[in-house]
Design a protein around this nucleic acid. Structure first.
Length: 372
RNA sequence: GGAUGGUUACCCAAGUGGCCAACGGGGUCUGACUGUAAAUCAGAUGGCAGAAGCCUUCGGAGGUUCGAAUCCUUCACCAUCCA
């Protein structure tokens, strides 16, 4: 169980296979995010049509509602949401960052004021593991503290707590059919990241993650940090870059040895009218598309692009029809899933540098390009 | 034919002498979004500049006033009621 096999390497990049109780992950892999036990606007069958391999769900949100015990009673997360393939649960560590206004941290854990009803809720390493065991994902995450990456004193403190909590997570874990991944923190500070990468590596967990990135730091700092951390993390274990999500970041991450990614970006952008392409983003609400008969991307083979015009999608968005979110989510996820597959193929065929540099060149200077 | 109420920017609508280029919605336009408090959020929306500023507006015309979307006269149109 949880065997990681490297099939090929190209520079620092790797193509691998990670065996889990619910199937094999072919890496590099991108995981759509389904925070509340659903990838917003999509059915599991639509996700399967997209060949999504891994879906992420969230400890904090499911703990609050409907409750991890209820999900356990209903047969676990896979059964509950009818996703038969591998799943990963985040520990709630990201909510320490994203809900920073309504929480209080101490060395033992974090107290949250529920964003749903205001009730005080407590998350500690042991609680997070207990909840994740009730949920039953294949990969579970250590409870960490995701901090503002640019303040050194705080980054150090958060890193130290993350390390202490990782040990407690290991201690608390009981289920053998779940792989616990540790999380490297340390902000944008090389010495902290090095220290953290060494510590997390020493725990000898079945996989390791890089957290605390793409939360406001510069791109160059993020790439440098990935590089530095991956030079230390063991190469025979999967490396998971948490919360990363643009096409260029996927490419840059893979080039630096990342195997697993997840991000809300494709599905969130979809609901906000943005289409992701390998030539930049399109805001489909722009008036310029009102009579545009073309698909989002003529080179895209997704269901949305093979059936619908930009004009139709713009109409759906404009009319606030639910189908807009679905069709754009299908397209955006397809873009990232397909990119991950192409990166894997390029690694297997030993032509990653060439593939990556031409793709990055296409994207250069237009991370959010409005028009194509 | 008479009475009353009404006519404000793309639409609805507030404003009843100076703080009004004019509240607030809607619509429209533009932007943002990276381990989801996000089908969300932000800005713009008379014209020209687009910092300051200048010009043209509140059904039409005329008037009162230092000053009018706001007061008066008149015309047009709309609504309701009475003949």
């Amino acid at each position: 169980m949880f065997e990681f096999t490297l099939k090929a390497q190209d520079g620092s990049a790797r193509a691998g296979e990670f065996l889990t109780p619910h199937g094999v992950l072919s890496t590099p892999v991108f995981a759509p995010v389904g925070t509340q036990a659903t990838v917003k606007s999509l059915t599991p069958s639509q996700l399967m049509d997209l060949d999504a391999q891994l879906v992420l769900a969230n400890t904090y949100h499911l703990f609050l509602r409907p409750g991890d015990e209820l999900i356990a009673e209903m047969g676990g997360l896979h059964q509950f949401m009818q996703w038969p393939h591998p799943m990963l649960t985040d520990s709630g560590g990201f909510q320490v960052f994203s809900l920073s206004k309504i929480r209080k941290i101490d060395d033992d854990g974090v107290s949250f004021k529920s964003h749903i009803d205001g009730a005080m809720k407590r998350l500690e390493p042991e609680t997070s593991i207990r909840i994740q065991e009730n949920l039953g994902a294949d990969i579970i995450m250590a409870f960490d503290e995701c901090a503002d990456p640019t303040q050194e004193a705080y980054a150090r403190e958060a890193m130290q707590r993350t390390h202490a909590w990782a040990l407690r997570c290991i201690e608390a874990k009981t289920r053998p059919d779940q792989a616990l991944f540790g999380i490297v923190q340390g902000g944008i500070f090389p010495h902290l990241r090095e220290e953290s990468a060494h510590f997390i590596s020493s725990l000898n967990l079945p996989g390791n993650a890089i957290g605390g990135l793409s939360v406001g730091e510069r791109k160059s700092e993020m790439y440098r940090t990935i590089e530095l951390v991956n030079a230390i993390l063991p190469s025979d274990k999967p490396r998971y870059l948490m919360g990363v999500g643009t096409p260029e970041d996927l490419i840059e991450g893979v080039l630096r040895g990342v195997d697993i990614f997840d991000c809300v970006l494709p599905t969130r952008l979809a609901r906000h009218a943005s289409a992701m392409t390998l030539d930049g983003r399109l805001n489909l609400l722009n008036a310029a598309f009102s009579r545009d008969p073309q698909p989002i991307d003529v080179n895209c083979s997704c269901y949305t692009c093979s059936h619908f015009s930009r004009a139709y999608l713009r109409h759906l968005l404009n009319a606030k029809e639910m189908l807009a979110a679905t069709l754009l989510s299908i397209h955006n996820l397809h873009t990232l899933l397909q990119l991950a597959r192409e990166l894997r193929l390029a690694i297997l065929q030993g032509r990653l540098q060439q593939y990556a540099s031409s793709a990055l060149e296409r994207l250069a200077g237009k991370p959010n390009a409005g028009r194509v």
